[in-house]
Design a protein around this nucleic acid. Sequence first.
DNA 1: TCCCATTAGATAGTGACACTCTCCAATATT
DNA 2: AATATTGGAGAGTGTCACTATCTAATGGGA
Lengths: 214, 214
Amino acid sequence: MKISELSDRSGLPVQTIKYYIREGLLPKGAATAATRAEYAEEHLERLRLIRALREVGDLPVASVKRIIGAVDDEAVGLHELLGTAAYTLSPAVEPRPEDPDWRSAREDVDAIVAELGWQVSTDAPTRDLLAQAFLALRRLGRPIVWTDLRPYIEAATIIAEHEIGGIPVEGERGQAVQTAVATNVLYEKVLLALRRMAQENVSARRFGDGTEDR
Amino acid sequence: MKISELSDRSGLPVQTIKYYIREGLLPKGAATAATRAEYAEEHLERLRLIRALREVGDLPVASVKRIIGAVDDEAVGLHELLGTAAYTLSPAVEPRPEDPDWRSAREDVDAIVAELGWQVSTDAPTRDLLAQAFLALRRLGRPIVWTDLRPYIEAATIIAEHEIGGIPVEGERGQAVQTAVATNVLYEKVLLALRRMAQENVSARRFGDGTEDR
DNA sequence: TCCCATTAGATAGTGACACTCTCCAATATT
DNA sequence: AATATTGGAGAGTGTCACTATCTAATGGGA
């Protein structure tokens, strides 16, 4: 199909498609002449993935590029792919080992991971992410305690078991891998939306007078 | 304290503090002369809140302002405050009722909420947020089903019960309200980090060979 | 008391980001 | 042959969150 057709079918401006090609998010079409190229169904599929990650996942273009690179790399297995995604998805938190407060928060994280017996890489950015949240909570006078943390750990475990368990071990790479990453990102948003809804629900029952519709 | 002292203690440049004052995130200091103002401990506290929401919560300045406005408004009760926060936190998703796919996704959301019997406002932005994710999943050929959704609902319920249950009903406003919102935002990040860690853990156990450290 | 650092307040500038626009030459279509 | 479309490249745009500069007015130490 022509680029204008790709544009129509994807709902994206031609300019944006060209931009994605320039940035390496989307492969070029097969050139049929100096000023003509043919786009396939895969291009449309890829655009859908890009838009899902951009609009719903709110990922920067650079992150989308990294993830797509891992998806396209046939040598990358599912486990590594999920790792790449997790690493890429974590907003870069630069650790500051010189700050004693930071170190303390990071040590709390490490202690918790050890306590749980979780197999999480020592240099996983998620550890820093968690440490950053711990540090902020402490600064606000709300240091974390086990009691507060337990429900989150429980919830995270429930979800992760289901998510990883749902990934087919056998079968071909490709479509499966592509959606594995996308669903990972998308279901994160599902979880957040559901948490907020559940909060509103519980809050309405506890504090509301039952009549308000906001 | 002087602004330079506030800057030192908060770790923020004087220019940034001035910027926050201009934007209405931080009240001015008490003017003692045309070119002098006195800042109190509250200013420092407020800066900590702003930084927590900005750096950890990754909220735009405008959102921080809205939340702070609700926190400062004595007339706003806890339930409404949480509502304001939830509304403000949801990235604006503009619904497109003319798009049949969108309508279908939104109807799925409404059906699920009704099925669960949750008290969630009809025009809550979380509904649109969820619909957006559903739509993207469908487009990627992965329409949501109850089986997939249940663990997330379960997890969201566990967390919300704990979170709302932990809010003191009695007691004075003020500090309590301020941290209620902050912890809501911060624990969202805690949850996300824990989910990723749990994923890495389960993935490592399932796919890893046990020797790898990444 | 004199002088230099500091401050409030306002305006302008910066760098990152994700597009979006404009052009040109080379086709394709009619 | 006339008109529209395309690939490719570079420049421009708007938003955001600061950051820099400037001016006039103190403040506080020598």
